[in-house]
Write a protein that binds this DNA or RNA. Structure first.
Lengths: 230, 230
DNA sequence: GAGTGGTCTAGACCACGGC
DNA sequence: CCGTGGTCTAGACCACTCC
């Protein structure tokens, strides 16, 4: 029962750096875009070696809080979305998840976002939705793909929940990074039904017809799941 | 079609280690619990310094795929949930999210899990749900808190979506790590209504009454949100 | 005692960015 | 040119685990 073992797990040297920097952040001594002390400075301030400092910085960088700029310094950033992506992609790599689960999750996130967006969307937002649909109907394939993304993004934007946005972006990223899936998706996108589906989603959003909008979304994700499955 | 590495951004030394180990994983040369080459080995194999090797290992450790055991070696593990927790907690620290958003997300995740669990739950699962409710009704405060967790866990378990489980655990963790919130929650938990709510959730799960079960869940999370808000 | 992670020393050189 | 990150050298000592 040694009380000594308060730090049961980790009295690691680089933890000091993590704690130190978190404190700086919490006290608002540095904010986004701000520069943190140089590696050589941290090394002296915390009286640990540069190696240990760098191990900590690598962790923070990979957590998406920090960016190392060669020749300039280490800066606070907000890239936690990328960090989430990398974890999700490891999950798939380790076969702890799969595209079906990812798609299922995306579906439920967007449905939630849709409900909230319906309540919170502005007139300007509704106009944007209309414009997107216009471009989707009249543009070429590339234009349709772009407006597809824009429409989904619009929904999340007006959901007013940054977590939803972050997670969805991260999940989209891992779908995108899988070549074959994207290809199949592109094939599906090039259909009249696909456009009609999105048009319906947009119109329901504009008119506040949540029920039908949700059904359209449901169908949208079932479509994707069919593509992913084989 | 291997494009000639378009490493637009990073020809970092430690990336070699990341790539190397990912390959080992992909090829199933190592699996959970397995030991990866020692730092000194990696150093020679990839012909980089030990420092660089360690920077890579710190990243992987913090991503939740690797664990360093002093005196033993580095082993593959599955702790990506903790990694997600740490990202979420940084999000809150950086004020890029807040408890309202976290709770909202938890709510939608559990509702989705509930729908799927309703369809997939076994007879054994239903019995478990019944037993949990029994303990919740008859146990002391501590017992009620435990069965509370068990019930929610049961729902996610039968959802058969590991992503949902992982995310929810990560989100719960950051709620838990905030002292004041937990306290208020504990206060709420100690009421008849709280028990009745959970009983309802369990019964609807057993009887396959999805609609009412979802309503109970909705109420459950509204309850939590009230606690969190002030 | 051998192997391994954790950390440090005390430098060094390169590449990059800004003055 | 100087400060900074990126990397390396060539060791070293400690603490831990296993045999």
């Amino acid at each position: 029962m040694d009380k000594e073992s308060v730090q049961a797990t980790s009295p690691k040297a680089y933890d000091q750096v993590l704690e130190y920097l978190k404190t700086l952040i919490k006290n608002k001594d540095i904010s986004y875009g701000g520069k943190i002390p140089s590696e050589r400075e941290l090394m002296e301030t915390l009286r640990i070696s540069r190696n240990s400092v760098r191990e900590a910085l690598r962790i923070l960088e990979h957590t998406g809080v920090l960016e190392s700029r060669h020749g300039k310094g280490n800066f606070l950033v907000n890239r936690m979305g990328e960090s989430l992506s990398s974890v999700f992609s490891m999950l798939v790599l380790m076969e702890e998840s799969n595209y079906r689960e990812v798609n299922q999750l995306r579906s439920v996130l967007e449905k939630q976002a849709y409900v909230q967006a319906s309540a919170l969307i502005s007139e300007e937002g509704k106009e944007k939705a209309g414009a997107i649909i216009n471009r989707m109907e009249n543009g070429d394939l590339e234009e349709r793909i772009r407006s597809d993304h824009e429409l989904h993004h619009l929904v999340f934007e007006y959901s007013q929940n940054r977590l939803l946005i972050l997670l969805t972006d991260a999940l989209s990223e891992i779908i995108r990074s899988e070549g074959e899936v994207v290809l199949r998706q592109a094939a599906s996108i090039d259909t009249e039904e696909w456009i009609a589906l999105h048009k319906n989603i947009a119109i329901c959003l504009i008119e506040g017809n949540i029920q039908e909008g949700l059904l359209a979304l449901e169908e949208h994700y079932e479509w994707l799941e069919r593509d992913i499955k084989m």
